[in-house]
C-alpha cells in the first residue's frame, strides 16, 4: 500500500498564534485514518492545512507523491482531496440538487453521480427540489458528505462528522463511512467520539495542543485506556 497523503512536520498559524507544531503522519491508500483530540487540539486546523485553507508555514503536505504546498484550496479539490467541514456549510438557499451539482466542480469523475447518491441517500432524492436550509441537522450532514462525494475525491476528509448528531444518525453515518471505505476511498476522519472512531478506523493518531502525541493501529488503541484517559478525557 502506498501513501496517499503525507503530512510532514507542518507548522500552521492563525495570524501570529502558532497552532500546529511539527505535525507528522501519513495516510495509506484505502485506509480509514482517524485523527482524535479534544476541542481546540488542532484537528480542524490540520484539515484546513491539508487543503491549503490555512497553508502551513513550515513542513510539507504531499498528496500522491506531489508536494501541494502553495496551491489554492480549489487545486486541492481538483487533485482529489475532498473536505467535509465540521460546520457543514451547505448552501441553504440553493436546492439540495444544486448543492450536489456544485460538488462536481472538481471536474473529477468516478463512482459517485446523482443516481448513485440518490440511491444511497434516498432522503436527498425526496428533498432534491427543496432549499437545503430546510433540512434537519442530520440530513444536512448527509448532504455535506454527499456533496463532497459528488466530486469523487480520492481522499475524503471528514471533520467531526458525528458532532451534534442523534445516536440514530451516528449509526447511519457509520454505515455510510464503511460503505465509502468499501468502495476504496481513502478516509481521513477527525473525531472525539471514540466508539465511532474504533468502529470505522484502521489507524489512529491523537493530537493534543497542536502536537501529535500518539499513533497506533486501532487494535492497540482499543486496549490503551491510559491514552484515552490522558488525551481524550474519557
Amino acid at each position: 500500500m502506498h501513501e496517499t497523503l503525507l503530512v510532514q512536520n507542518i507548522h500552521s498559524y492563525y495570524g501570529k498564534s502558532h497552532i500546529l507544531f511539527d505535525v507528522n503522519f501519513s495516510v495509506k491508500k484505502g485506509e480509514t485514518f482517524c485523527l482524535m483530540g479534544r476541542n481546540g487540539a488542532g484537528k480542524t486546523t490540520t484539515f484546513k492545512s491539508i487543503v491549503m485553507l490555512v497553508p502551513p508555514k513550515e513542513g510539507k503536505v504531499i498528496f500522491n507523491g506531489k508536494e501541494i504546498n502553495g496551491l489554492k484550496p480549489y487545486h486541492a479539490a481538483r487533485l482529489g482531496i475532498g473536505l467535509v467541514p465540521e460546520d457543514r456549510r451547505i448552501f441553504g438557499d440553493l436546492t439540495v440538487k444544486d448543492n450536489l451539482l456544485l460538488g462536481t466542480s472538481s471536474g473529477r469523475h468516478g463512482y459517485w453521480n446523482l443516481e448513485q447518491i440518490y440511491e444511497y441517500f434516498p432522503i436527498l432524492l425526496d428533498y432534491q427540489d427543496k432549499p437545503a436550509g430546510t433540512m434537519s441537522g442530520g440530513e444536512q450532514q448527509m448532504l455535506t458528505i454527499a456533496r463532497t462525494l459528488m466530486g469523487n475525491p480520492e481522499i475524503l476528509l471528514l471533520d467531526e462528522p458525528t458532532e451534534g448528531l442523534s445516536p440514530v444518525m451516528v449509526k447511519v453515518l457509520k454505515d455510510l463511512v464503511l460503505k465509502i471505505k468499501e468502495l476504496g476511498t481513502t478516509i481521513l476522519l477527525s473525531e472525539q467520539n471514540i466508539k465511532f472512531c474504533m468502529a470505522v478506523a484502521d489507524r489512529v493518531v491523537i493530537i493534543d495542543k497542536g502536537h501529535i502525541v500518539y499513533q497506533a493501529d486501532v487494535a492497540s488503541f482499543r486496549q490503551d485506556d491510559d491514552v484515552k484517559k490522558k488525551y481524550l478525557a474519557v
Binding site: 485553507l53 480549489y74 481538483r78 438557499d93 444544486d98 451539482l101 456544485l102 466542480s105
Partner: peptide
Amino acid sequence: KIIQAASTDTQMVGMLGVNV
C-alpha cells in the same frame, strides 16, 4: 448557482473545486 453559493460561503465553494 456558483455565484449564488459564493454569496453565502466563498471558501466552501473553493473547497469544492471552483476557482473563486
